[in-house]
Nucleic acid binder design. Sequence first.
DNA 1: GCCAATATGGAATACACATTCTATCCACTC
DNA 2: GAGTGGATAGAATGTGTATTCCATATTGGC
Lengths: 288, 288
Amino acid sequence: MPTVKQMSSSQAAPPPDSFADLEQLIAARHAGLSSRLKDIAVFALAHPNTIALETVATVAEQAGVPPSALVRFAQALGFDGFSDMQRLFRLRLVEQMPSYTDRLAQREQGEAEGADTLDQLAAAAHRAIDDLAAETPREALDEAATRLARARGIDIVAQRRSLPIASYFLYGLLNLERPTRLLDNQGGMLAQYLRSLHPDDVMLAISFKPYAPETLEVVRAAAQRKLEVVVVTDLSVSPLTAFGKPTLFVRDAEVQQVRSLAAAMCLATCLVLETGRKLVQGRGRRKE
Amino acid sequence: MPTVKQMSSSQAAPPPDSFADLEQLIAARHAGLSSRLKDIAVFALAHPNTIALETVATVAEQAGVPPSALVRFAQALGFDGFSDMQRLFRLRLVEQMPSYTDRLAQREQGEAEGADTLDQLAAAAHRAIDDLAAETPREALDEAATRLARARGIDIVAQRRSLPIASYFLYGLLNLERPTRLLDNQGGMLAQYLRSLHPDDVMLAISFKPYAPETLEVVRAAAQRKLEVVVVTDLSVSPLTAFGKPTLFVRDAEVQQVRSLAAAMCLATCLVLETGRKLVQGRGRRKE
DNA sequence: GCCAATATGGAATACACATTCTATCCACTC
DNA sequence: GAGTGGATAGAATGTGTATTCCATATTGGC
C-alpha cells in the first residue's frame, strides 16, 4: 500500500513554519530553481505584502507570470499550494504588528496543549501590557496626572469589573494625600453624590465593556457641572470616550472569555506614580 | 439617467477610505446601531487582525455571530459587503508595518537612556508575571480552585491595598454564580460577620505587606471555626501563610516605592478561570 | 397589548478562487 | 538532427467563499 507521493521523495521537503525560515529556504533553494521559479522567488522576497494579501491572479499579474507558476513555486517549496504558502506571509504581517492581541486569542483557543491557564494568562498579560506601553500617548498620561495633582477633590466612579481599578486608585491617591472619594452607589446614594460635585473637582471615570449605564450617567452629570473628567476605558466606541479630557485606553488580556485587569492595573499604577511626581514637583517649585 | 442606488439615499453613506476614518466612523455610528451590530463593532475594534485575515465564517465563529450579520455590518457602514470592508483592515496591516521597526528602535533607545514611568512599570510587571507563572505550584492553584468551586459559600477578606484584588474576586466569583460576599468592614460590622461564618464556607484571604491586622484577625476566627482558608499573600513570612490551605504567593512589581497589582491580578484571574472550569467539569460529571 | 417595522439567523445561491490538467514548447542528449 | 525529459501557459474544474433571500423573532410605537 504505497503512499501517493512516495516517489517524488527526492526531496521530502518539509514546509517551513515561520516566515524567517521561509526566507532562508527561498534563498537556499534559489540556485536550483528553474528560471521562471527564480523570477517568482525574487518577486516574493521583494513584495511580501502583495503575496500576503492579494489573490493568486493578482499576484500573477503583478509578477508577470501565470497563476499556475505561483502554485508550482509554492509546491516546490514544500507547501500544499499557494494558499498554504500565503499563510506564512500573512503570519508575518500579524507578528510584526505592534499589537499581537488577536493572534494570541487565536492561539489560546486553538492549542491549549502544553501551556496551562496560568501560562496562557501570563503570555496574554505580557502582550496587553506591551501594547499599553507602546500605544499610550505620553501627553495624555501627563495631562491626566496633572489634572489629578491639582484637583480640589477627586471623585472616582466605576462599577462592576472596573471597581477593582477604582479601588486601587482610591488607595493610591489617598496615600498621596489627595482628597479622593469613591462614588460606588453604596446605599443607593449616587444621585445624592451628584449634587455635591464641585466644578474644581476632577472626576476619574473607569468603564469597560459592557459599559455600566450608571457610570455614563454620573459622567454626564459631571460634565454638565463643568467638571474635568479623566476617563479610563477600553475602546473608542466606549460611551465615555467623548467626555474624557483626556481619555486613556487600555485593552486587557482575555483568556477563555475571561478578561484580566493586569494591564489596567499597570496603567492605574502609572497614573498614581505620575500624579505623585507632579505633586512633588509642585511642592518643590513653591518652596523655591 | 438615475444612478442605481439613488433611492437608498436616506444615508448616502460614503464608505471611508482609510482605517483611521473607519475607526472614527464606527465610533460615531455605534450608538445608532442595533444591538447585534454593536457587538460586531466592538469585536471589530478589539480584533482588527482577525477581520483582516480570516474568512467571514471564521470571524463569525470567533465573534459569536452569524456570517450574515457581518455582511450587514459592513453594509451599514457603507461598504458593498464584508470583503469590501476587509480591504481597509488589510490596508491597515501593511500601513502600520514599516512604522513598527521605528517604534522598536525608539523603544530600545528609550530603555538605554531614560525609559519613562510606564515603560519601567511595564518591564517590572513583565518580570513579576513571569515569576508568578514560573513559581506558582500548579497543585496549589488546583487545590484552591477546587475548594472555591465546591464551597457552600465564599467569604473574601482583604484590606487596603489588597482590596482591589478582593473586589475582582468578588466580581469574578459572583459571575460564576458562587455565593460570595466581601467582608470589608463596611460600617464596622466585621465582628458581626465573624459570627455568621459557616464551617462549610471557604474563606479567601488576601493580604500584602504591611499586613493589615484586621485581616489576620478574621482569618484566625475563621480557622477557629474550622473554615478552610485560601490565602493569597506576598511572602512566606506573611502572618497568613500558616493558615492557608493552600497559600498562593505573588510578589508584585515595584517602581519608585509604589507597588503595582498586575501580577496579583493575573493570579486572581487565573484562579477565577480555574474555578469556573472546576464548576463546568462538576456539572458535566453530574449529568453523565 | 396589539400592530407595524425592523432586526436576525440560517439555508440557498452565486461567485471567486486556487488548483489541476493537458497540450505545447524548449533545452539537452545521443 | 531527431528524440526525450522537464518546464510552461492557459483553459477547465471543483472547492471554498461571500452574499442574498426569506421565514422567524424582536423591538418600538400607538
